[in-house]
Amino acid sequence: MIAAKIMIAQPKTCTTDEQVGVVFDRMRMQSLRMLPVVDADGVLKGVLSTFSVLGRIVPDYIVSGDLNAIAYAPDLGLLRKHYTTVSDQPVAEIMETTYLAVGANESLLSVAAALIGFGKHEYALVVEKGGRLLGIISAGDILDSLLQITEDGRYSDA
């Protein structure tokens, strides 16, 4: 089985110049936790995830552990303040540029192994040679395809 067989083709995407707030609202409406970011030619530039947004709104001095046990701080107010700043920025400013890209002809096993090795997201982005985005595969997609084959009582590596 190759990646092209189980990937979700033409996945939902956003562009580098869209506002984070607009894209994030769209992600929430569609219950998406991650969106590939592409340019006008459909070439993959990065990913925007709930995690990358969270990483930008939680201050570094808290992430570093220098200030813990801060029950006295108005946490929602602080996070909202940071989110307001981040939401006005273009996606290019906060998107993650390290992501897992795989070729369409890669085997399912190597995609699964790469996902485990990458460890950061549970998504692999399927790209063609020039970097144009073809599809997306999640760890769940791999397991779903496995279950489907098992339920059908047949499997094929073709």
């Binding site: 001095y61 220098d66 200030l67 701080a73 303040k81």
Partner: peptide
């Protein structure tokens, strides 16, 4: 100092 970072962050 860490509380100061929090306060200045809140103050912008």
């Amino acid at each position: 100092a860490p509380v100061t970072l929090l306060i200045t962050d809140a103050l912008g």
